[in-house]
Simulated scan of single mutants.
Amino acid sequence: MFLIFFRVQAELKEAVRTWPHTDPLSWAQRTTAVTLLNRLDQSLEKAVAALKLNDPKYYREFEPLLTWTFWTIPQEWRTTDPSLVYPSTLTSECYDEQLSDKCLTLLLGTWKMNGTPCIVTKPCRDTMTRFGCPCYSLSHQLLYFMIGRMVILICGLAGFSDFHKTDWLQHILRLQDDEVGCFGRDKSFISQIIGDELLEQLQPHRRVKRREKILPDGCSSHMTAVAVGALGGYLNFHLTEQDITKRPLS
């Protein structure tokens, strides 16, 4: 989910570029957005440098995605088809981190040096098109096709307007920690992750968790990344809604 922050960076840059600033309030809001963008630019620059140093293999495989210029911002909004909603979902995740990473590198052509891009193997196709996948698995299926669409040329990030419901936004904001502003700052959740990390240290050959990192202030890096990505989509959507020139005629 580290990749989501680059999508947010693209969302913020597009928002700053198109922000209406014909009155003092809009201008002040845009100034705040610019400040946030500058902080994000600096943070991501440091994060990429640290990733390159600490995990060079991951950096090499996902380097094409580690820049805001890769992520295309939708210029028009669509709506989803309610008839495609799953009547029910699986009770467990159908996601495998190693396979998902491999499928993405096959799309990007980073599976080896100067590798051929746009490769879709049967295991990748079966996993990424499997029906009924819940939560985390579904988000990675969406990410896979978003990346494929941008190389081969998840919801609101792909330009679907009906994913930006006001009550959903309110729910996201209620989940935000009042003290530090992050997401997933839950003691029971933190205890579970710490326990998993200890178990992984004691049994190094046992893989018990994803690339989840608990930040120094106790926040969930994964949940924060997902929430921030969603908020970036809301920002871009609401700016579009305020621009009457981008609204449909009927």
Results as ranks from 00 to 15, higher is better:
4 I>D: 10
98 Q>R: 11
233 G>E: 01
35 T>R: 11
202 L>I: 05
15 A>Q: 00
199 L>M: 11
29 Q>R: 10
48 V>A: 10
45 E>V: 07
162 D>V: 06
246 K>W: 05
2 F>D: 04
50 A>K: 07
77 W>M: 12
214 I>K: 04
113 M>L: 14
91 T>M: 09
137 S>L: 00
68 W>K: 06
98 Q>E: 15
156 G>L: 02
121 T>P: 02
159 G>T: 00
200 E>G: 09
248 P>S: 04
39 R>Q: 14
24 P>Y: 02
220 S>M: 04
18 T>D: 02
120 V>E: 06
136 Y>K: 02
21 H>T: 12
155 C>V: 09
236 N>L: 09
45 E>W: 08
101 D>E: 12
54 N>K: 15
69 T>I: 02
162 D>I: 01
137 S>A: 15
113 M>E: 14
113 M>H: 10
193 I>K: 03
28 A>P: 05
174 R>Q: 13
21 H>S: 15
163 F>D: 11
21 H>R: 13
24 P>M: 01
50 A>E: 15
244 I>H: 14
35 T>F: 08
214 I>P: 00
45 E>C: 10
210 R>M: 11
81 D>T: 01
36 L>C: 09
170 Q>P: 06
30 R>V: 04
61 E>K: 12
33 A>S: 09
176 Q>M: 07
194 I>S: 13
105 T>A: 05
100 S>N: 14
111 W>P: 01
151 V>T: 07
158 A>D: 08
229 G>Q: 01
78 R>G: 02
133 C>P: 00
2 F>R: 06
211 R>H: 11
237 F>T: 06
61 E>A: 11
50 A>Q: 13
174 R>S: 11
134 P>T: 07
2 F>H: 01
91 T>L: 12
219 C>K: 03
125 R>D: 08
42 Q>N: 14
193 I>N: 00
60 R>G: 11
24 P>H: 01
119 I>P: 01
157 L>N: 07
72 T>N: 11
39 R>D: 15
99 L>K: 08
226 V>E: 13
73 I>T: 02
49 A>P: 03
123 P>E: 07
50 A>P: 05
166 T>K: 13
51 L>V: 11
126 D>T: 14
11 E>G: 06
177 D>Q: 04
215 L>P: 00
69 T>Q: 15
104 L>G: 01
35 T>S: 10
219 C>Q: 02
236 N>I: 07
152 I>W: 14
152 I>N: 07
197 E>Q: 14
127 T>N: 10
191 S>W: 06
65 L>N: 04
229 G>V: 02
201 Q>A: 13
166 T>G: 06
17 R>Q: 13
212 E>L: 01
102 K>R: 15
118 C>G: 01
203 Q>W: 10
199 L>E: 12
206 R>M: 11
31 T>S: 15
90 L>M: 09
116 T>Y: 06
242 Q>R: 10
39 R>C: 09
38 N>H: 10
175 L>W: 04
126 D>V: 13
178 D>A: 15
38 N>L: 14
3 L>F: 13
2 F>W: 10
30 R>N: 05
170 Q>M: 10
91 T>D: 13
63 E>L: 11
117 P>G: 01
230 A>S: 12
104 L>T: 08
231 L>E: 04
72 T>Q: 15
